[in-house]
């Protein structure tokens, strides 16, 4: 645990959020917000797909920085490898229109609504526990998080708590999730009027 991270982890709860953002977090935040913004604003769909690929790069680095390697790996595998390819294939089967303008014109009422929603969400930021705080309920709850962390190896004999939660403690949810993935494949077949994949 290095100094910069310890500063984030042990920051006082009442301190402003901005003061706890380190340099790498700040630059990754800026990167992610910019890519998300330009994905929405790009007029050409292909450019939007490419910039969305860049968005996933920033998100994976951010997840990794917050010590969520499983989520980061999912983001890497799905977003960089699969989503971009599937979106490109969809684009190849549709018509592309060459636009003169590089960016979409902003719909002002929609932008105002989004701004209001953003302001409302920012009002709740003061009550959210600091990143990595030991007093956050998601960490300090002795019946859920702490129990999983303490009991994972004794109960399941695997080291990765995330996998233990996914496959054992919440196995039934994961079964539903897997069936949803399977149903997505069938739904694509139905929508495209096909009986076979290949």
């Amino acid at each position: 645990m290095t100094g910069a991270i310890a500063g984030v982890a042990s920051g006082p709860l009442g301190a402003p959020v901005v003061a706890q953002v380190t340099a790498i977090e700040a630059s990754l935040f800026v990167f992610v917000v910019l890519t998300a913004l330009f994905t929405a604003l790009a007029r050409d769909v292909l450019a939007a797909v490419i910039i969305f690929g860049a968005y996933s790069l920033g998100m994976a680095a951010l997840y990794t920085f917050y010590r969520a390697p499983d989520v980061a790996m999912t983001e890497a595998a799905i977003s960089a490898g699969v989503t971009t390819v599937l979106l490109l294939l969809t684009l190849a089967k549709t018509t592309r229109i060459d636009h003169e303008a590089a960016f979409e014109s902003v719909n002002l009422p929609a932008a105002g609504a989004v701004g209001l929603l953003f302001a409302g969400l920012m009002l709740t930021m003061a009550d959210i526990p600091a990143v990595g705080s030991r007093d956050a309920p998601i960490w300090s709850n002795p019946d859920v998080s702490q129990w999983y962390i303490a009991q994972t190896y004794a109960e399941t004999h695997v080291e990765n708590t995330v996998m233990a939660v996914l496959a054992a403690f919440r196995g039934f949810d994961t079964f539903g999730e897997a069936v949803v993935v399977f149903a997505a494949g069938i739904a694509a077949l139905i929508v495209l009027h096909r009986e076979v994949f290949a």
């Binding site: 599937l86 294939l89 993935v181 494949g185 077949l189």
Partner: peptide
């Protein structure tokens, strides 16, 4: 399996031959 299938289905596109 589902991702490979989605890839092939999307690469083929909407069936112009009609129906199933």
């Amino acid at each position: 399996g589902v991702l490979i299938g989605l890839f092939f289905v999307l690469a083929k596109g909407f069936s112009d031959a009609g129906g199933f």
